[in-house]
Amino acid sequence: MTGFLETMFSPGSADMILTIGTIVVKIAILIGIVLLHVAYAPYFERKVIGHMQVRMGPMRVGPHGLLQPIADGLKLFFKEDIIPAQADKSIFYISPVICLFTAMSTLAVIPIFGGFVIANINIGILFVLAMSSLGAYGIVMSGWSSNSKYAFLGGLRSSAQVISYEIAMGLSLVGVIIMSGSLNLTDIVAAQEAYPLKSFIIPQIIGFFVFCVAAMAETNRTPFDLPEAESELVAGYFTEYSGMRFALFFLAEYIGMLLMCAIAAICFLGGWNGPFEVPYIPFFWLLVKVYAFMFIYYWVRATVPRYRYDQLMSLGWKLMIPLALFNVVLTGTIKMLR
């Protein structure tokens, strides 16, 4: 503590304040961009699914429904906040904040382009996986504290699903780490430049497949949206949440989806490297890849029906984990022989 105080009042304290100020400004810019994206991701989703079902999607609010996200946000902001009488109040209050906290903090290690990453730590992937594990706490706590049968079942299902697919996801990334020799996400992108298409997509195709399936299960998206299967569980673990608390869960879910898309683009598709350089927009190709992946999320939602819970579990444990392990052994063997 004295060391900290000495630093605070040493001549270098101006440097420290400047450094912290720069970091805060960077974080504010990143959060601003991400929130803008998250506001329009559901709009994009509704438009895509609408057109796939020969509908128009949102059209009423603003030209082509472009102001719909603002209307939705305002509505949620002014909604009454209902907390069930028998709920465990403090846990009920805190769990949406935990979900949002884990999803948002992960953004710190995601590189947007060559030099722009908020925390350039050497354990990037490990941090991402650790944070997504912590996200399960928010889900379990909300399901437990609501004191509702639907929420309880949703929370149970969700936590079992998330931890099952986390193993497959962790294993699918081991192949990428063997090939790049680093856990740092910027280094992984740099390592991909030597490979065809400037990406690991061809040598790591099995890993990419496992990662895609696991990413959909991790973010509770269709066809693995059993925790919030509306035809049987109403809304799953956030059945009892309303107004802004519900909005925080929603925000966390869409930030989680965005993160999964970004990690897929960075680890398997070559990040911000593209067929040619786009002047002035260094993050152009990353954005294109993220949006393409996002589109696939929506496409799958419009195409595939929901899995049954036993099918979901046996797919995870009996197919995805052996496949990912096989990929690890295969990548290691090929790397050893060369």
């Binding site: 630093t7 040493s10 270098g12 304290s13 440097d15 420290m16 450094t19 912290i20 970091i23 805060v24 960077k26 974080i27 504010a28 959060i31 209050y93 949406p96 904040v97 949002l100 906290f101 948002m104 903090s105 953004l107 710190a108 290690v109 908020i118 925390a119 350039n120 730590i121 050497n122 941090f127 802004m244 608390r245 909005a247 925080l248």
Partner: peptide
């Protein structure tokens, strides 16, 4: 001279994320 740790931005990010969540509520 002051050299920040690589993990300082993560700590700040976590604080901002929590403040954002609680602040909205």
């Amino acid at each position: 001279q002051y050299i920040p740790s690589d993990y300082l931005p993560i700590l700040i990010f976590m604080m901002i994320a929590t403040a954002f969540g609680l602040g909205t509520l």
